[in-house]
Design a protein around this nucleic acid. Structure first.
Lengths: 234, 234
DNA sequence: AAGAGTCAGCTGCTCTAACCAACTGAGCTA
DNA sequence: TAGCTCAGTTGGTTAGAGCAGCTGACTCTT
């Protein structure tokens, strides 16, 4: 029955052609509309909120959610953290997921990145340069580089999904096994990727991306081994 | 504060190194353990259930969830359906997401699919043959083909994600704009993909996958146009 | 008249208490 | 021994009350 309430609220959104941010009925209104108690309404809303379908603002109202893939990040992160603590190589699997997808996509990107994006990527590499000189490349710079790069694929959904993978990986890595990579290596590899994409070298671009991930994986390998010993198998 | 309760329940799972299926405290126990009312406990559990982190069985108990990417399907599906009804090309975007990822991955697959999987794929194509002769290829056969194919990448997480994309696309397509593709074309294209993968022809495999998606996209294009008129933009 | 402060009213949030419904497993019956 | 029944445990739902955050209109001051 709780399932049914969720479906009916979903129908409200779909049948009403409501866009993100549109206001939904208040809790008392939903009670009467659906003929259920307040608790049931709230539990359904909580579940929908967890899926990013609705957004609840205390003292203000309930609204149609952003419909982003953000909830996916939450789920992936938890799954990976839980697996890690149980001695599984879940973080490595997540990294390999990113590697498989990004290396597969990079070839499609060659020659399709607009000049404005290339200019932005140049600026980001320069920013990395400054940060590397200062000690470490900021996470956000790396994130923005990847996001800007794959923007060239002209599929916002794909961009969101890749960002979600990046976020989940980054959150688990910094939270559990923080061994920041050598900033100079990071800088060089990003520059290589950008150069290959710009010059239309599909093979080179793919190799550069693979090397980039290979670097991260190598760093991860030693750390995971350590943390496995720490936490013990079982 | 509700957020806090969720986090504390997550910690129970992580700190306890609990595997999928492990029992969680009952609602009254959680009340006392967390020092909150039953309502709050239940709302937190509902949210965690929506994320696939816990599994609730009426009259039995609460357990650690399967930690699959299943919730992602739910979210993606709703997002796509809602967008579609609002006149967006969300279904096309979802298809393009699959196309981009699968065409990117197919080259990595060439020569890496074990013989046992190739045999299974052969059997699936034969099954498709029989189904095509009878009128239409069963959805499940198509799904299993893709799942078995990408199993060769040896990354269960990646397999799950691809299956999630497939499910979401299929659910929206059959639910909204069901125009089944020509079964003979579907059959031929799957056979081409399998042949190319088996013979180590990376270029050919990629082209075959791209053609496969091109076929689906063409079918979709006409239908989406129709349904846009039906529902009217805005 | 213009601005800032206040408060009434909505909103969602939490709690208590009671009863309903589903499932399990021990005990009873045949 | 095999099957059934029922009591106990668990989650599901309802009801009513009060708490907490936000908004917007009203009022008081300048």
């Amino acid at each position: 029955m709780a399932r049914d309430i969720q479906e009916r609220i979903k129908r409200l959104i779909i049948d009403g052609r409501l866009a993100s941010g549109a206001p939904l009925p208040t809790e008392p209104e939903l009670m009467e509309l659906l003929g259920v108690s307040r608790n049931s309404v709230r539990e359904a809303l909580k579940a929908l909120q967890a899926m990013g379908i609705v957004e609840i603002r205390h003292g203000f109202g309930t609204y149609v959610g952003p419909m982003s893939v953000a909830p996916m990040i939450e789920g992936l992160t938890f799954r990976t953290v839980a697996g890690h603590y149980r001695g599984e190589d879940s973080l490595l699997q997540l990294l390999e997921l990113r590697e498989a997808v990004e290396t597969g996509l990079i070839a499609r990107l060659v020659g399709r990145v607009p000049d404005t994006d290339l200019a932005e990527l140049d600026a980001l590499v320069q920013k990395m340069e400054r940060e590397a000189a200062a000690g470490a490349v900021a996470a956000d710079t790396d994130r923005t580089f990847h996001a800007t790069l794959y923007r060239g694929l002209r599929n916002p959904l794909l961009g969101e999904v890749l960002e979600a993978f990046w976020d989940a990986f980054h959150r688990v890595r910094t939270g559990l096994v923080d061994v920041p990579p050598d900033p100079r290596v990071t800088l060089r590899q990003h520059r290589e990727i950008l150069d290959a994409v710009r010059s239309g070298d599909a093979i080179g671009a793919e190799r550069a991306v693979r090397e980039h991930f290979g670097n991260i994986r190598a760093r991860l390998g030693s750390t995971v081994a350590v943390s496995e010993v720490e936490h013990g198998g079982q």
